[in-house]
Design a binder for these strands. Sequence first.
DNA 1: CGTTGGCTGGGCAGGTTGTCCAGTGTTTCC
DNA 2: GGAAACACTGGACAACCTGCCCAGCCAACG
Lengths: 158, 158
Amino acid sequence: MSPIDALDARVLELFAAEPRIGVLEASRRLGVARGTVQARLDRLARTGVVRGFGPEIDPAALGYAVTAFVTLQLAQGRGHDPVAARLAAVPEVIEAHTITGSADMLCRVVARGNRDLQRVIDMIVAVRGVERASTVISLADQIPHRTLPLVRAAAQQP
Amino acid sequence: MSPIDALDARVLELFAAEPRIGVLEASRRLGVARGTVQARLDRLARTGVVRGFGPEIDPAALGYAVTAFVTLQLAQGRGHDPVAARLAAVPEVIEAHTITGSADMLCRVVARGNRDLQRVIDMIVAVRGVERASTVISLADQIPHRTLPLVRAAAQQP
DNA sequence: CGTTGGCTGGGCAGGTTGTCCAGTGTTTCC
DNA sequence: GGAAACACTGGACAACCTGCCCAGCCAACG
């Protein structure tokens, strides 16, 4: 069976839409007892489905208008972790994965503009263990990061 | 000057670390008046720096253990938006960008496993306007999505 | 058939929120 | 130089919510 049910999905949906409402108001809107909402939230947090309720920050609003994806080829035989650790020192590197395929890592980076992006890329290629970098710029965020459809899908699983 | 200052950064950092503390406790920890924290949060929300406080959902905990990046080549002359709209109908497509370079779009997708990933990719290539898809799988999330370093950097700007 | 687990509806004390206010220091602009 | 605008402080208030507890009920499970 799925790790969540329909009520979990409704709870998550509601809190995604209006995070500030609080448990009591949520229970009213969902037509269940307050304790139930509280119990569901506790469980969702305990099982790791919801990682937290931290503020979602928009890099663009901070002045980082450009998003780019950088694929890296690394020097062989030295492992990925040390490179990742050094990449983590660059604030503009917002995310990094090791990947399959001909490249070794995929990073998401932001910059204040295209000129600034050059600076960020220079910092990345200067990292020891990085052999080459190939960059594509995001022109439009056609589907902004979302997880609600997943929640709905998971809730309908047997 | 930067859109945020050092106090904004401290507020964001605190709420990122402990989202449940509330305005009053935050003001105590930061050593400022409650109204100040409230005003800062209001402004950060108004200017779009903080998009919201929604629950952060972990697809892995929902059973979607595999993350992959799919680059798409689209049929020419029909635009990106209709394709994006149809991709949005696939719950497993968590994010999509139009990009520079030889491909046209980059999608982040999740799946329950490698076999399930095949199903998701089939759904994507079945989308009208998608000519080819090339997939790389994320082996490890070396740097999980983060924005705090950016906040700190932005706060130090003149 | 008894047990377990989840939901309901309720009650309680304590803390927090939203919203005022006056006072003060700083910056900006005539 | 002075006035206005702005942000922060410290304090107050009522209303509300949270965390926590409880008893009772129901369904599923062994």
